[in-house]
Amino acid sequence: MCNHARHDRVHPIYCILPPHMLKEIAKNGTPQQRSLAIDTLSADHTFRQIRSVQAAMLAPRRGAAVAPVAAAPSVHRTIYTANQTETLPGTLVRSEGSPKSNDVSVNEAYDGLGATFEFYQEIYHRNSIDDAGMPLIGTVHYGEQYDNAFWNSQQMVFGDGDGTLFNRFTVALDVIGHELTHGVTEHAAALAYSGQPGALNESVSDVFGSLIKQYTLKQTADKADWIIGAGLLAKGVKGVGLRSMKEPGTAYDDPVLGKDPQPADMAHYVQTAQDNHGVHINSGIPNRAFCLAAIDIGGYAWDKAGRIWYETLNDSHIKPNTTFKTFAKLTVSNANRLYGANSAESKAVSKAWDTVGVL
């Protein structure tokens, strides 16, 4: 979530770039890079205006668009451009079934929303983000050289990046899947966005964002890169992406961005009041647990490891304040239910959580 999160009863706005990274840019970057980072960090008032407009414009439309129970699930995408403004949703540029645009960002957003819908429908029989046919809306070219992308519980929004630190934010499919999965988590588990529940919220988005990319590329767990945001860092930046699920803390080490602060196990859990008590930082621990389990189980990660995590996300025992340990125990319980108490799958899940020090 953005550093400029709302603190009222509506859902927070979830940004892909964590505040600790933006703060490093604000401290270490060129004057232009610092200015852009500060603008992103101080955008709270703008987002408050966005939410009030969005609630008025989109809520009625969503209710009217829910498909009849008998209708087969089908994707409904609408892409807008903000034309470098901060007005949402913007100008309509592509709707469901219309031809490709000459704008690569429009097409990447359209394809990314479609790939996410297809993944959840084909693999877990989920009908869109809310499991009730929610239309998928995206806005590209938000702001001027805006270094972020976010989900605001209504739609996806993509910045173009500044070109020196970040490329356009539509370039990474797993980023799109990550942000939309925040919507899935809102509807399925309502995990609080602070501390360990918030880090689980971020981790779930990384898990399924990565699985969406792997599913699209038809990669097995041992062939996947397990990098979140590969291709997002601009040329010359010392890093491979925003986070590494396989080796948390190694995604980047750059003079401007700083060093990836994610811990790989509970022995290095970061106690901090920043970033909603470390939601983007400590998510590396459950991320690594999933990656270890998926590789140990083998095959396509969405098939068994992903199903265990998805069933856990929808488990009635999940509460808004669920901790790492509670979530881990529930993944083991669901692995036992799905594959057997002494199954290889169950053992792999238990071993993974033990390796990162949660169980």
Rank of each mutant, 00 (worst) to 15 (best):
N148A: 00
D174C: 03
P18T: 10
G163I: 15
D225T: 10
G29R: 00
N336I: 13
R243D: 07
A189Y: 03
Y339V: 09
V10M: 13
D160I: 11
W353M: 00
A26L: 06
A67F: 15
L200P: 03
W353P: 01
Y124T: 13
I25A: 03
D253I: 03
G63C: 14
Y142F: 09
A43H: 10
D147S: 10
R94W: 00
A67G: 04
F166W: 02
S101T: 09
L165K: 01
R34N: 05
A26I: 15
S105M: 14
H20Q: 11
N287L: 01
A234V: 09
V184A: 03
I16W: 01
N148T: 11
F158K: 05
P89S: 08
D160F: 12
T46P: 07
H7W: 08
I297M: 02
F169N: 05
Y300P: 11
T91N: 07
S52A: 13
E86I: 09
R9P: 00
V66G: 07
S194G: 10
L58A: 13
L92F: 09
T355G: 08
S205H: 05
A5T: 12
N342S: 14
I308E: 03
I16C: 05
T185W: 08
I13Q: 11
A43Q: 06
T170G: 01
T355F: 06
F208Q: 01
G114D: 15
G97N: 11
Y215W: 13
Q32I: 13
D303V: 13
T331P: 00
P68W: 07
T116R: 01
H4M: 07
A221Y: 01
W226K: 00
L292R: 02
S101G: 10
D174K: 00
N127I: 11
S128N: 12
T326C: 13
T272V: 06
T323P: 05
M134F: 15
D111C: 10
L292Y: 12
K100Q: 13
V171T: 04
N107I: 05
L58I: 11
P18W: 03
L200V: 04
G340W: 02
E118H: 08
T170H: 02
M1K: 08
Q154N: 11
L41I: 06
A37I: 06
P73S: 13
G159T: 12
H45Y: 12
R48I: 15
D44W: 10
W302G: 02
V66F: 10
V10I: 08
G29L: 01
A70T: 06
I16F: 09
P255Y: 14
H4W: 15
G278K: 01
K329H: 14
L22W: 04
D222S: 15
A109I: 07
P255I: 08
S52H: 12
E311R: 15
F169W: 14
R94S: 05
N3I: 13
A188H: 09
V106P: 06
L232Y: 01
V256L: 04
D39R: 07
F324Q: 02
K259W: 01
P263I: 08
G138L: 02
Q155D: 04
A26H: 07
T40H: 09
Q219P: 13
I228D: 11
F166H: 03
V104P: 08
M245W: 01
H268I: 08
S35I: 05
P12M: 07
